[in-house]
Amino acid sequence: MISAGIDIGSLTAKCVLLSDSKILAYKVTRVKPKIEETAREVFEETLKIANVRREEVLSVFSTGYGRSRVEFADKAITEITCHAVGASFLIPSVRTVIDIGGQDSKVISVENGRVVEFVMNDKCSAGTGRFLEVMANALHLKLEELGSIAMKAEKKITISSTCTVFAESEVISYLSSGEKIEEIVAGICDAIASRIVAMATRVGVREDVVLTGGVAKNLGVKKAIEEKLGIPVKVPEEPQIVGALGAAVLASRKKNI
């Protein structure tokens, strides 16, 4: 049977089609002001990629910040449960999921694919993807470039502030005083990693640790988190779709019962 998971985040929408425990297709798009329309579009585009008709999909679950506004979904499940399920599907040995999304980040403790505990940071943009986006803008760099640039640094500059707005002005002043870009970028990755690690310590970190969300693609952040935790961190091939995947997995289970 075919099931679908749709994850409407604050910046991107993702859809995953699953058939008998195999990913048929997935798609990531930007979120538009109209959530219902965004959901429909990302769903249709994924169907097209997989060459599957709408009627063939027996169950659709939604998740993410806009989950309750996807009217055609059979059920809405929080991104916390979905990330735990999605990460366990890809890496069954997972015990800790660190998800860094566009506007929030969370650490989830997992046991047999189930959530045991979680913490979220959603009051402050420092520690989320938004932080990196603002910094990339301040440095006139592309968001995707940050990771590889950070990897070139031999040392890192300490970004002392944990507030996005203040950190931005700090970065600009480092720039004008002639500090090396890669060292500033490494410092930025380090700043976000220290927020995440502080949060992770609260739930307790157990291996394997899986990093998900768009920011997981940033090697600089991954490396900084590994350094601070003192253990390796696994990143799925497509870290952005883990929530949608979890929703699709749960949707497939529902119909099996």
């Binding site: 910040y65 499940i77 929080t78 991104e79 916390i80 449960t81 929030d104 189930r114 959530v115 045991v116 505990e117 979680f118 979220m120 959603d122 009051k123």
Partner: peptide, 16 residues
């Protein structure tokens, strides 16, 4: 008070 954030936490807790 942020409704979406509170709802997510509480829903996730009940799911758990």
């Amino acid at each position: 008070f942020s409704e979406a954030q509170v709802a997510t936490r509480l829903e996730a807790f009940l799911e758990m």
